[in-house]
């Protein structure tokens, strides 16, 4: 479903991604672990072209993201095309980024109506259903600031789901939450995994990775150091760096 090949990315002189290859099959959950600065978030953001890559390519469901191949060159797509592609990818941010001046329901309804041109009358019941599913059904008409962090993140997940995306990307979805609120967000993500959503999750929650991941990827210094089933990577890491990281986080 997601196919990443030879992705390189630099910020100025700093090379953050040094050739990443990644294959996420449909319905699989991939968890990316790694120390901060290892390039996890940049990789995730380059999957939906929030970050332009310098070299390499990303495909989702066979479609080249952000570029069009003409002859032997990749031409960057027009913004409108990129936005259309993004509306098929759900992205959940560390800091939620809910629209503060819109109610919870308006937050969820906005993109399906404006980006996918679906009818408001058809989207609204679906949005309420999604809010119900993530456990904030009674909060549809309040503003994000009136919610706890955990509730806000669950609304952000509902907002991403409203686009009926092919894949879901989570960028440290629980890092900005108080410890007692982490569980409620992870529960929602677990349920999505059980329903067969294709997901890539950047996180520091090792226990969560062990529970839901089909594949765990350990990144360090812009490279994928190790990848495999959670049992292999988390319990019997081959590389010294993976071992050191896991012993520090656990």
């Amino acid at each position: 479903m997601i196919d990443v090949k030879g992705v390189h990315k630099s910020f100025g002189d700093l090379e953050v991604l040094k050739g990443i290859d990644l294959d996420v099959p449909a319905g699989a959950v991939t968890v990316i672990l790694g120390p901060s600065g290892s390039g996890k978030s940049t990789l995730l953001r380059s999957i939906n072209h929030l970050e332009k890559v310098d070299r390499g390519l990303v495909r989702i469901d066979g479609e080249l993201i952000g570029y069009k191949r003409r002859g032997d060159k990749l031409h960057e797509l027009r913004e409108r095309e990129i936005l259309r592609q993004r509306s098929q990818v759900g992205f959940v941010f560390q800091t939620f980024n809910l629209f503060g001046h819109l109610t919870v329901l308006q937050n969820v309804v906005e993109a399906p109506v404006s980006a996918q041109r679906r009818k408001r009358s058809e989207v609204e019941p679906y949005a309420r259903e999604l809010l119900e599913r993530v456990g904030v059904g009674d909060k549809a008409d309040v503003y994000p600031r009136q919610l706890s962090g955990g509730q806000q993140q669950r609304v952000a997940i509902a907002r991403a789901l409203a686009l009926k995306p092919k894949v879901l990307l989570f960028d440290e979805p629980t890092s900005a939450l108080d410890p007692e609120l982490v569980g409620e967000v992870l529960d929602v993500i677990k349920e999505l995994a059980r329903d067969g959503a294709t997901m890539v999750v950047v996180t520091h929650e090792i226990g969560f990775a062990r529970e839901i991941a089909d594949t765990v990827i350990f990144m360090d210094d812009g490279r994928i150091v190790e990848s495999g089933a959670p049992r292999e990577v988390l319990d019997n890491p081959v590389h010294e760096r993976t071992r050191a990281f896991i012993s520090k986080v656990l």
């Binding site: 409108r80 936005l83 993004r86 906005e110």
Partner: peptide, 23 residues
């Protein structure tokens, strides 16, 4: 306005003009 607002709007695929006037 927090840059995260525009980023979220871009990630949701909201059209450019709408990002500006609505968000």
């Amino acid at each position: 306005v927090d840059a995260g607002q525009l980023e979220a709007a871009a990630a949701l695929g909201i059209p450019r003009i709408r990002q500006f006037f609505r968000i």
